[in-house]
Amino acid sequence: MSFTLSAPDLADAAFAARFHDVADASAHTDGYRPFNEQAMLDARSGRRSPQLLLEGEDAVGALILGQGEIDLVVHPRYRRKGHATAALRRLFEDEGGMSGDLTAWAHGDHPAARALADRFGFSAERTLLQLERPLSDADAATSPVLPAGIGIVSFRPADAAEWVRLNALVFATHPEQGAITESDLAARMAEPWFDADDLLLARENSTAAAPGRILGYNWLKIEPGATLGEIYVLGVHPDAAGAGLGRALMLAGLARLRERGCTAVELYVEAESTTPVRLYRSLGFGDRTVDVQYHRGPR
């Protein structure tokens, strides 16, 4: 058993095809993607290294490594044969192996992932809920009630710097979302799913001539050809908290998704974020699956 080192680069078409074959087969079997969006962006940009786990010529698993993070999935055809255990032993125990603070996501909170985490000294650190609900024509007909002096407008490229500052403020304690830079935003804007009209901004005293501060946003994501939309990220400025702006932005987002032909919507939220979770459940969202991030301290 070995890792490919000859072409750990998703720009290589042959390598990428094999990597995505493992990921797609896993998603089909498990009902959720084995790598989240940030991991894939890191892999494509070169910030982290995508690799294949091989047994002979067969790709039995895929990994994304680097920056103290591990993402690992085994192809459904090759599970329960010790491949994940062997891969982690090599990562941690071989000379020059990974050490220091390490994190690993278990998407779907798979029992096998929990067992591996325990075996290699990882403990659960974060729980991410994936919630969903159907959409109907009634969602498209709903008109959100906005606080006085606030209007909802579409994102413009000139809004990038202000949006990044607000996002950093809203998610100051969030390890991924709060760290988004203008370059990260530009990378997402270059994705095929991005549509500026799907990034809804709540502006204070908004007029065409003199737009006011951005006080909130609801960024929607619809993959090309998909009927499942996503509340990609929702944020409200602390100055506007408690005024109903989050609910208004959610209702505007649901209407936009339905107008664009979506029949269902999903979102991700930290389990301990009680206020957002309460809002989403009040709007009819129910549980779909759970992701758990594991952590292991320096060894």
Rank of each mutant, 00 (worst) to 15 (best):
41 L>P: 01
6 S>G: 04
122 F>N: 00
104 A>D: 00
274 T>V: 15
243 A>T: 14
158 A>S: 13
189 M>F: 10
158 A>R: 14
291 D>N: 14
182 E>G: 13
87 A>S: 12
271 A>I: 01
17 A>S: 12
291 D>L: 02
173 T>Y: 07
7 A>G: 07
13 A>S: 08
79 R>Y: 09
95 E>F: 10
60 V>C: 01
8 P>C: 03
236 V>E: 00
79 R>G: 07
250 M>K: 08
275 T>W: 02
295 H>V: 06
75 H>A: 15
259 E>V: 08
47 R>Y: 05
240 A>N: 05
90 R>W: 11
264 A>K: 07
93 E>A: 06
37 E>L: 14
197 D>M: 00
147 P>Q: 01
279 L>R: 01
150 I>C: 02
115 A>N: 10
77 R>S: 07
281 R>P: 06
250 M>I: 14
75 H>S: 13
296 R>Q: 08
29 T>Y: 10
198 D>I: 00
223 E>P: 02
53 L>A: 01
58 D>E: 15
135 L>G: 04
89 R>C: 08
113 A>L: 06
116 L>M: 10
175 P>D: 02
40 M>A: 07
56 G>W: 10
149 G>I: 11
289 T>W: 11
194 F>I: 11
168 A>L: 05
295 H>E: 10
255 A>S: 12
11 A>R: 14
102 L>S: 06
211 P>G: 03
203 R>D: 13
284 G>Y: 00
280 Y>K: 06
70 I>Q: 08
75 H>G: 04
114 R>F: 11
148 A>G: 14
208 A>N: 12
290 V>Q: 06
45 S>V: 08
265 V>R: 06
13 A>M: 03
232 Y>E: 07
217 Y>R: 06
146 L>F: 00
241 A>H: 15
51 Q>W: 03
93 E>R: 12
18 R>N: 03
218 N>C: 15
282 S>V: 05
58 D>I: 14
26 S>H: 09
258 R>W: 01
184 D>Q: 03
242 G>T: 08
28 H>R: 13
86 A>F: 09
294 Y>E: 02
225 G>D: 02
165 R>T: 14
6 S>A: 13
12 D>P: 10
156 R>A: 14
173 T>N: 15
219 W>D: 03
108 G>V: 08
51 Q>P: 00
237 H>M: 04
185 L>C: 04
276 P>Q: 11
43 A>W: 02
12 D>L: 05
256 R>V: 05
58 D>R: 14
67 Q>I: 04
129 L>I: 00
161 A>R: 14
168 A>P: 02
250 M>N: 09
112 A>W: 09
274 T>N: 09
11 A>W: 04
61 G>W: 10
181 T>K: 02
122 F>V: 01
286 G>T: 15
135 L>T: 03
174 H>K: 11
168 A>S: 05
184 D>F: 06
132 E>H: 15
137 D>E: 15
28 H>I: 12
167 N>V: 04
97 G>F: 11
